[in-house]
């Protein structure tokens, strides 16, 4: 008996049995990123992100230009936005899920001309390292905020908020320090590690970044959610929904 499936249709719709739900990943990415984008926008237009001593990551560093009716969050938003948009992991996520190039492996691309990352706008992804440089500065501010979250009017204390802030900055550091561009920068570009002492040091740095880089996608998601959760928690405190459980010395 023969079955009417010829070439070239080649079973594009026939599901891969190791990943029977090929549409699950794109659906998840579109849903999660859209939800995060909408929430982030909502959080940023609130013009409030501080519940002593906690500062929302959307509002850090806290820049206020008097006279301008713009939410301080917008002065910094371009940094994480640009960093994540040009991140090698998110590139995979949106090329697959939003642009369908391809939506899943061995599943047909969206029809039309394909130029990859050779044309505008995607050729701009090559500037990812510049967003990394600014992000490293912002990460410094976030660590400062996290440490400040343990300072209650000059007394050391630990609140649920302090824990959340700390966890958030740890996850953000894991994400940022596992960056592919950083991996190349610290040592990936070298061909001979044994040739000098400096190169040996850079081999160690490269190995360290590689360790984090291994699970870069996981760090990307975890840190994205922790940013949202940190903001949600602080927003509850701002609106007095509940009080922050804390212990102060």
């Amino acid at each position: 008996m023969t079955v009417e499936v010829g070439r070239p249709p080649a079973l594009r719709s026939q599901l891969n049995l190791w990943k029977p739900l090929w549409w699950a990943y794109p659906t998840w990415v579109v849903t999660a990123l859209s939800a995060f984008g909408i929430y982030a926008f909502f959080a940023m237009i609130q013009k409030a992100g501080f519940a002593y001593p906690y500062l929302s990551p959307f509002y850090s560093p806290h820049i206020v230009i008097s006279g301008l009716p713009i939410s301080p969050a917008f002065y910094v938003a371009w940094v994480p936005l640009g960093f994540r948009l040009t991140c090698y992991y998110y590139r995979k996520a949106y090329f697959r899920s939003f642009l369908w190039e391809p939506p899943a492996c061995a599943v047909a691309d969206r029809p039309g001309r394909y130029t990859g990352e050779t044309r505008l706008p995607f050729v701009l992804n090559n500037f990812h390292r510049y967003f990394l440089y600014v992000t490293l500065v912002v990460l410094g501010f976030l660590w400062y905020d996290a440490i400040r979250a343990f300072d209650f009017h000059g007394h050391f204390g630990i609140g649920v908020g302090s824990g959340i802030m700390l966890l958030n900055v740890v996850l953000l550091s894991g994400y940022t320090l596992g960056c592919h561009a950083l991996r190349s920068l610290v040592g990936g570009g070298i061909d001979c590690y044994s040739c000098s002492l400096a190169a040996q040091g850079r081999h160690r740095a490269w190995s360290g970044v590689s360790l984090l880089n291994n699970r870069h996608a996981l760090w990307a998601w975890a840190s994205m959610f922790s940013v949202a959760i940190t903001d949600i928690y602080i927003r509850f405190l701002i609106h007095g929904v509940f009080a922050d459980p804390r212990w102060v010395s």
Binding site: F95, P102, C105, G116, E117, H180
Partner: peptide, 25 residues
């Protein structure tokens, strides 16, 4: 041309991290 969608890495029977260790560097 590569948009790092990682299907090559997914199918490699030798488990070479084609995208992370070759293409991206």
């Amino acid at each position: 041309m590569c948009n790092i969608t990682k299907c090559c890495t997914d199918v490699c029977p030798e488990h070479i991290h084609i995208t992370d260790n070759a293409i991206i560097p």
